[in-house]
């Protein structure tokens, strides 16, 4: 079969994950870290609305009847992940804009009184994570529901969730390390790097479990996973995802946490490894989307 859902869908799946992950990063650093983690918390909030808005724009371009898209919001089809996912994304995106406003420097907050805004910030930070988990994982359910051998993998939503958290944390590290304004302190980056390394390890584990389960499953499913590990997608899988997207950044982050780099190198390594995590996360969506469509039941 030919490719029905192409790069535009891959971009959407990726950006939705980054936004949800950056949002959770901001929410949790605010609730658990407080003042010490103000910079990464702020950057998470400032980033969050943009990738997903971009992804939604791209998604609209992919529609055959883009002017009909309002039809999505005239109904709720409980059996269609795209239907409840669209609602979740709508609320997520709106709330992420409100949340961004609450993190703006005070002189830019024209509406509202500082103390009330601070309270609202904390309130939202307690609610949005649930929505974010929904946004990050429903894309896995979405592929689950399309009866294709690779997409039938029950761990897909979990893989997408962990990958979303990992790319979200990486996006926050990347931006808050590269910026001249409100640059993150070493302590903040250190903690996020630790979390990201853990998430990468978890992602490796989930990928492994998915592959083992898939290979032990029916012939069609085994063949679909085969296309990833030794078939036409092997290069993307082993080099771009496992190598550059998981093992290299994990090793860099590990050495960084063990303080193997001189001070001069710490920042470039942080920036480099977080970029690689984003890069790998993109190709995770790519390979699942493409290999899923090029393999079929037989």
């Amino acid at each position: 079969m030919e490719i029905t859902w192409g790069l535009l869908i891959v971009i959407y799946l990726f950006t939705a994950g980054v936004s949800a992950g950056a949002m959770i990063t901001s929410n949790l650093t605010l609730l658990l870290g407080g003042k010490d983690f103000e910079r990464v918390g702020r950057w998470g909030a400032l980033i969050s609305p943009f990738p997903i808005s971009f992804g939604l724009g791209v998604l609209l371009l992919d529609l055959g009847s883009p002017f009909n898209f309002y039809r999505l919001f005239m109904t709720l089809q409980v059996r269609s992940p795209m239907s409840y996912g669209s609602w979740a994304i709508l609320f997520f995106t709106l709330l992420s804009v409100v949340y961004l406003y609450l993190w703006l420097p005070q002189k830019l907050q024209i509406v509202g009184e500082a103390k009330a805004l601070e309270q609202w910030k904390r309130r939202l930070a307690k609610i949005i994570p649930f929505l974010s988990v929904g946004v990050a994982s429903y894309t896995g359910l979405l592929l689950n529901a399309a009866a294709r051998p690779l997409w039938a993998a029950p761990l897909l939503p979990v893989l997408f969730l962990v990958s979303a958290l990992s790319t979200g944390v990486a996006a926050v590290i990347f931006v808050s390390a590269i910026t001249p304004w409100q640059r993150a302190r070493q302590g903040e980056l250190h903690l996020l790097t630790k979390v990201d390394a853990l998430l990468i390890a978890l992602e490796c584990f989930i990928l492994l479990a998915m592959i083992v389960m898939g290979r032990l499953s029916s012939l069609s499913v085994a063949a679909a996973f085969g296309s990833m590990i030794y078939g036409q997608f092997a290069f993307i899988f082993w080099i771009l995802i496992v190598g550059l997207g998981l093992l290299v950044p994990f090793s860099l982050e590990y050495m960084e946490l063990k303080e193997k780099f001189s001070v001069r190198w710490t920042l470039p390594v942080t920036i480099g490894s977080s970029f690689l995590v984003l890069f790998g996360g993109f190709f995770v969506r790519y390979i699942i989307t493409y290999a899923g469509q090029l393999t079929r039941w037989f």
Partner: peptide
């Protein structure tokens, strides 16, 4: 009139029985 052309149904059909109609933009 309700179809937005998202192509979800096309990917979901195990028999490849659907296609995106380039003239109508619908499944």
């Amino acid at each position: 009139s309700k179809c937005i052309g998202c192509k979800y149904c096309i990917t979901a059909c195990p028999y490849d029985a659907r296609f995106a109609n380039p003239e109508t933009g619908k499944a």
